[in-house]
Amino acid sequence: MERALTRQEASDAVSDHGWRLLLGTLRTSVSVGSLAMATEVAATAVTACGDRADRHLHIDLRPRKVVLTLRSSADVAVTDRDIELAHRISTAVTGKGLRTEPDIGAGAPRSVQLLEIAIDALDIAAIRPFWRAVLGYSDEPGADGPRDPLVDHLGQGPAVWFQQMERARPQRNRMHVDVSVPHDEAPRRIEAALAAGGRIVSAARAPAFWVLADPEGNEACVSTWQGRDG
């Protein structure tokens, strides 16, 4: 029987192995030199997971990078089994002279991350079907209510969620982007945004998220898993 973990438990269990907790998933990347090598890394990860690969592992292959994601499809959560599989994968990848890493070192283009689009709505149930249809999205597993997020079942696009509004706010954008980054990447990302002309609108919910804005007031949130348990 698998046990779903708290965010703190999951993060603590894998951080030293180069994995990071993002939006209820464990995620890491492996730098490679070719698509052929990326395919080899993917095969290594699948072999390490054995017969549990189909239920836990997702892989994105590129010529320079392999992104690995773990989450139990049955529990729609990170479980103790995912921790075990993360350790297995990291050990197997290390055996090939490579390493699992979140890419937060100096000079890295960016770390692993996930995007969400948030849409302000007065009547979420009324607009959600439109966005589900126009994007070709589907309900998130285990979340099919009239107010729940929508996801790309192919994993190619950002999730979409709806922010309940009490009244319209025409003076600001009604959509914003949530950038979910590793908890130890957030300060660097915020610093870069401020250096690029942005400002912090609110840090009241930090470290769960910081609300930032560009010079014209369009908002984006930098989010982490921290500050969300309990």
Rank of each mutant, 00 (worst) to 15 (best):
M1I: 04
E191D: 15
A192Q: 15
D120T: 02
L57S: 11
V211Q: 12
S73Q: 10
M37D: 14
I83F: 03
V14P: 01
D82I: 03
L22V: 08
R62T: 11
V14F: 02
V134K: 03
D148Q: 12
Q226Y: 00
T224L: 01
V93N: 03
D60Y: 06
T39C: 05
R88D: 06
D75I: 07
K96D: 07
R167K: 12
D54V: 13
L114M: 12
A196I: 04
V41N: 03
S34N: 06
A208L: 05
I117M: 14
D139S: 13
R174F: 01
S31K: 13
R188S: 14
D144L: 02
G145K: 03
R147Y: 03
D120E: 10
M37R: 14
M175H: 12
P129F: 01
M37Y: 02
D12A: 15
L61V: 11
A193S: 13
K96Y: 02
G227A: 06
D103V: 00
L98S: 02
K96G: 11
R199V: 13
V181A: 12
D75N: 07
I200S: 12
Q164A: 15
A208D: 14
A121V: 11
I127K: 12
P182H: 10
H56S: 05
L23G: 01
F209S: 08
T28E: 10
A108S: 14
A48T: 06
S73E: 10
A42D: 10
P129A: 07
M175A: 15
V134F: 08
V151Y: 10
T25L: 06
F130Y: 10
S111T: 15
G33E: 14
I59Q: 09
R64K: 14
F130A: 11
Q163E: 13
S202M: 11
A108V: 05
A204P: 00
A53F: 05
V78I: 01
P158L: 00
Q164D: 12
G33V: 04
V14H: 03
D16H: 06
E219P: 05
V211M: 14
